Computed example of a mutant assay.
Amino acid sequence: MSTNKKIPLRKCIATGEMLPKKAMIRIVRSKEGEVSVDPTGKKSGRGAYVSKSEEAVELARKKQILERQLEASIPDEVYEELLHLIRRESIL
């Protein structure tokens, strides 16, 4: 008897693709309005998901999609951290 565990899907805010949670990076806005990258996906707050691709991150940055989704201003450091995580993962 095989147990077909449902894979949680999330929508990428940049590309609109539905992808498994593991193929995404979560960005979260805390109650205090602080925006941070949430690699564990466990932080509390309003979250938005972006695909683990540099193109998706650059698209989100260019079109200010994260700002709209999280209703907060996104510091450049957040985008840099996202790109760093993606690049590091593509090396592994």
Score class of each variant (00 low, 15 high):
residue 2 S to R: 09
residue 2 S to L: 11
residue 3 T to V: 15
residue 3 T to P: 09
residue 3 T to Q: 15
residue 5 K to F: 12
residue 5 K to I: 10
residue 5 K to C: 10
residue 6 K to W: 00
residue 6 K to L: 10
residue 7 I to G: 05
residue 8 P to E: 11
residue 8 P to Q: 04
residue 9 L to V: 13
residue 9 L to M: 14
residue 13 I to S: 01
residue 15 T to R: 15
residue 15 T to V: 08
residue 19 L to H: 12
residue 20 P to I: 06
residue 22 K to N: 09
residue 23 A to K: 12
residue 24 M to E: 05
residue 24 M to L: 15
residue 27 I to F: 03
residue 31 K to R: 11
residue 34 E to W: 10
residue 34 E to Y: 06
residue 36 S to H: 14
residue 36 S to G: 15
residue 37 V to S: 01
residue 39 P to T: 06
residue 41 G to K: 04
residue 41 G to R: 00
residue 42 K to C: 10
residue 42 K to H: 08
residue 44 S to N: 11
residue 46 R to F: 12
residue 48 A to S: 10
residue 50 V to Y: 03
residue 51 S to R: 00
residue 52 K to W: 05
residue 53 S to N: 01
residue 55 E to R: 02
residue 56 A to Y: 00
residue 57 V to P: 02
residue 58 E to V: 01
residue 59 L to I: 13
residue 66 L to M: 15
residue 67 E to G: 04
residue 69 Q to Y: 09
residue 70 L to D: 01
residue 70 L to H: 01
residue 77 E to A: 13
residue 78 V to I: 11
residue 79 Y to N: 06
residue 80 E to W: 14
residue 80 E to M: 13
residue 82 L to K: 03
residue 84 H to Y: 08
residue 85 L to W: 01
residue 85 L to R: 15
residue 87 R to N: 05
residue 89 E to H: 06
residue 89 E to W: 13
residue 90 S to N: 12
residue 90 S to L: 14
residue 92 L to A: 11
